[in-house]
Amino acid sequence: MENSKKYSLRFILENYALYIIMALMILIIGMMSPKFFSLRVLRDILMQSSTRIIVAMGCMFILVSGSADLSGGRTVGLAAVVAGSLAQKSDYYIKFWPNLPEMPVIVPLIAAILIGLMVGLANGFSVAKLKVPSFLATLGWMMVAYGANCLYSNKPPNNSQPLGGFLKPFTDLGTASFLSVPYIIFIAIGVCIAVHILLTKTCLGREIFAAGSNSEAARVSGINVFKIQMITFAIAGACYGLAGCLEAARTGSATSTYGNGYEMDAIASCIVGGCSLTGGVGNVFGVFFGVLIFNVINYGLTFIGLSSYWQYVVKGLIIIFAVSIDMRKYHRND
């Protein structure tokens, strides 16, 4: 009886809803235009997903630890502008820092990650020490990050212009390929693997899950919940920073509007990918596919020439549908 249950249609539908929906989408789009089944499309989708995957990985840490994070998008924007301002050619005529020499690509990369880390630590401190509910704390820091970004980009001689004229090694980060696979995909997958190992194979990972699902029990068991929250927000911030840097590299430009709305996309992807808003649940594989499904929708619907207006409708419906099926898993005890 157990076995028959395991392979029943309902079981399959409930446990693999995400993958089934994605397969169906791909199949339908492919039927409408067979060109969809090509390596180029796969590469495009993975490339477009890559920065969002990194943002979603950061977001997942926060969700698993039982908080919410709204600062993701604006942190990406801030990091993008900071990284961009440090990666300009010396002969570019409105150089952000006119006297700055050309620097190796690692400098803007590290700077972006540090900026993200700082926003993350500010978030963590507000949540863990000042006890501001994470929803509000991160909303506040989101505004601060955006304001800081506007102030920074408005500095003469830039005056809020989009930053451009990046060094080739920098833009290569986002556009060049190795064995015709873009670096940016390697980076994203590398981040996924690192996050997976951290969450499942280290004490820290287990402590994050414990603190996320029952912080009181974790505290009694000797887990330093303050430390855990600081670390999760810091890691998330670093992910946002990295994503921001790559976003600037990929598009070859950066403005203060970058990253707007990424946090909501990331949260939605995490939930679709099986994270719980109440904390303590989440896995890298699910979130990876959560992001991918959104980008398959974005890309696929544009690919077949469907108007953006319809894309919003389809995207919204798929979120509701995917999550509602997923929820059935947890509510079948009657």
Binding site: D44, G300, G305
Partner: peptide, 17 residues
């Protein structure tokens, strides 16, 4: 009005058209 979004949309349209 977003550079990244335009890039993604055009990439998708380009793959087909």
């Amino acid at each position: 009005y977003n550079r990244g979004q335009a890039q993604e949309k055009v990439a998708a349209l380009l793959a087909n058209f």
